[in-house]
């Protein structure tokens, strides 16, 4: 693998060919905010929070799906980008019913922490207050659609790590929502293997272990990393035990 030299926020760094800007920045200690990226599953470039400015490119590009190139000059934290990020977060908070005070993920929520790290002290857009349901039918897990940001991490881990294909997005636009099987209640899903990866992957309080109350839902991403390493790199899977 050839190495590429590039500049991120004034820092000269080198990255492996084929690496994404997000990976390269991460290794260089530059944290680019994102909500839809999850280590171990493919990227979709949907949340638009990791957009960066690349010199010579008129459009903003998502760091998660843009590969590094020799001589790239990247800015990840301009005033314009910060403004857009804050607006994106405000749009998310206005879209569904994210009531942090009474959320299982309060204090362990990526949406919440991004909001304060981006300086969002209030939401300037009118809250939509849509009517979404809570699916508590599963034996072990719950899904609160009010808190879903449609990052599709749960869908991607379900399809690409577990291979069950239980979760998907149905509908479109503002009506898009996460389903299990044929939009049946989760507890009725025949394909769900109850592996719980979706719960580990969720950045907000949308997916949770049953029994967790406000601010109790913490995630353990290392469990996902372990599985990804097993499946992709096949490090310890050698054919026979």
């Amino acid at each position: 693998m050839a190495a590429k030299t590039l500049t991120i926020d004034g820092k000269q760094i080198s990255a492996e060919e084929g690496a994404t800007v997000l990976q390269a920045a991460d290794e260089a200690g530059v944290k680019i905010p994102t909500l839809c990226h999850l280590d171990g599953v493919y990227d979709v470039g949907a949340c638009r929070l990791c957009l960066v400015e690349i010199a010579g490119v008129p459009k903003l590009l998502p760091a998660c799906t843009t590969q590094v190139a020799e001589g790239m000059v990247i800015h990840t934290d301009s005033e314009r980008l910060r403004k857009y990020r804050r607006m994106t977060l405000e749009l998310l908070f206005a879209e569904r019913n994210h009531v942090c005070a009474v959320c299982v993920a309060n204090g362990h929520c990526e949406l919440q922490s991004l909001a304060y790290n981006q300086g969002m002290d209030h939401v300037r857009y009118e809250y939509n207050f849509p009517k979404w349901s809570v699916d508590n039918t599963h034996r072990l897990f719950g899904m609160d659609h009010n808190r879903c940001i449609l990052c599709t991490r749960c869908v991607r881990v379900c399809w690409h790590i577990e291979g069950a294909g239980t979760k998907n997005v149905a509908g479109r636009g503002g009506k898009a929502h996460i389903i299990s099987d044929l939009n049946m209640s989760w507890g009725q899903s025949y394909s769900c293997t109850e592996c719980g990866k979706c719960v580990q992957a969720c950045p907000t309080g949308a997916l949770f272990h049953k029994g967790s109350t406000a601010a109790e839902m913490e995630r353990d991403r290392t469990r996902l990393e372990f599985l990804v390493t097993a499946r992709e790199k096949k490090q310890w899977i050698t054919g026979e035990e």
Binding site: C47, R48, T88, L91, L92, E95, V169, K175, A176
Partner: peptide, 21 residues
């Protein structure tokens, strides 16, 4: 545009709703 937004990215999905509002 709001009705036809696919819902994948946030600016289009939620932004068109707010602009329409």
């Amino acid at each position: 545009c709001m009705d036809e937004s696919c819902g994948k990215c946030i600016p289009c999905r939620a932004g068109t709703v707010q602009m329409h509002n």
